[in-house]
Amino acid sequence: MVTLSRRIGANLHKFMALPAVILFGVFFVYPLLRGIGLSLTDWNGISAPRFIGLRNFVDFFRDDRALNDVKNTVLFALGSAPLLNIFGLLYALLLDRNFRGKSLARTIVYLPAIISPLIMGYIWYFILQPERGFLHKVLESLNVSFLGDNWLASGNTALAVLVLVNVWQYVGMTMVIYLAGLQSIPVEMFEASKIDGAGYFVTLRYVTLPLLAPAIKINVVTNIIGSLSVFEVIMALTEGGPGYSTESLSIYIMRMCYGNFTGYSTAVAIILFFIILLPVVTYLRLAKSREVEI
């Protein structure tokens, strides 16, 4: 009897983990395996799926629209992820200081992050819309309305606008993580640096940034993942247009899935998974070796 209760006691943690394991299995492992299975079929969402091997993956690399979407997605991430980190860090450094209205300033920067990205996209659409948007009216009153025209009508400028809107919305989130990182650095470190005669930038370079490494890591990884899987802001502002010039891979997956190419869309989702995994793993490895150096 004692042995049994000891056994239960020793294995209790496994039982406690069981619900989480079941949930993980049902909502992550099963869909993942099912998705991999479907990616090897020609399922159109209606008829029974038929096994076609790796044809979907081959088709992806032959599809101009898909390759264009990869380019859009990567360009968006290349613009968005670094800007989010740079501005997030700058805001954090600025708002970590003591001044009147600090809390209000932090709230203002963070506020867009709690608004739905879809709503944010629509708000920006009404600001940026050529001919009748708020910005157009302002520029018109200054007699420079030509500056505000057609930003959303060309693929390249529309993509740049999308990056800026995304950065504006999520910079508060990045800032909060950097602020938490800054506040966890012991004050003694800054005092010691000051005693040693280091100025602001030297302290930033040799004390603040190295000790912010965990926050940088979190922000870089989450921003890469978020930027490469971008969906809502594009749907709200341009719907991937004009044409498909700002379509991201996530939107492509949705459209293919709904458009009777369900098996193919699952294959593209797997490809997107690897597109996200590659920079994340590379960065984590680099960060790890850097942490060892520090």
Partner: peptide, 21 residues
């Protein structure tokens, strides 16, 4: 029309036409 080619899809092609694609 085939279900995988909606009026929206056709319309996006006209957008492409208009942009000079």
């Amino acid at each position: 029309a085939p279900p995988g080619f909606s009026g929206d899809d056709a319309g996006r092609m006209v957008q492409e036409l208009y942009t000079g694609r």
